[in-house]
Amino acid sequence: MAEPMKIRTRMVDGSAHVFVLMMHPMETGQRKDPRSGQAFPAHFIQTVTASLNDRPVLSMQCGPAISKNPVIGFRVKDAKPGDRLTVAWEDNKGDKARAEATIA
C-alpha cells in the first residue's frame, strides 16, 4: 500500500505554488541485487495528474529516471485560497494513490 503524499501550497501573486512529495521507490530496472546478480524489477510512477476544483491542471508522464520519492513542483494561475487540489498517481504495477489539499 502506498504511503500518503505530502502536498504543500503557497499563494504568490495570485498563483498557487504547489509542491508534491510522493513516497515511491522509483526502481529503474537497471539496478542489480549484489547477491543474486539479478536486476531489481522496474517499479516507477508512470502518470501523475493534478486538478484544482475538478479542473485538470497538470498531467505528467514519468519514466524511471525521476528520483526516488519524487517531488513535483508546479504553479497554477487563477487559484484562490480555499480551492481544492487533488493529486493522483499510478505506477507501472497498477498501484495508485490519491491525495487532496486545500490551497493555503
Binding site: L58, M60, G63, S67, P70, I72, G73, F74
Partner: peptide
C-alpha cells in the same frame, strides 16, 4: 532511456516545473 518526464499543462498552469531526477 533519455526521456525522463513529460508534463502537460492545462487550466492555467504556468510554464514551470520543479522536480528531481537521476
Amino acid at each position: 532511456f533519455p526521456l525522463m518526464a513529460q508534463a502537460e499543462f492545462a487550466g492555467g498552469t504556468e510554464g514551470y516545473l520543479n522536480t528531481r531526477f537521476k
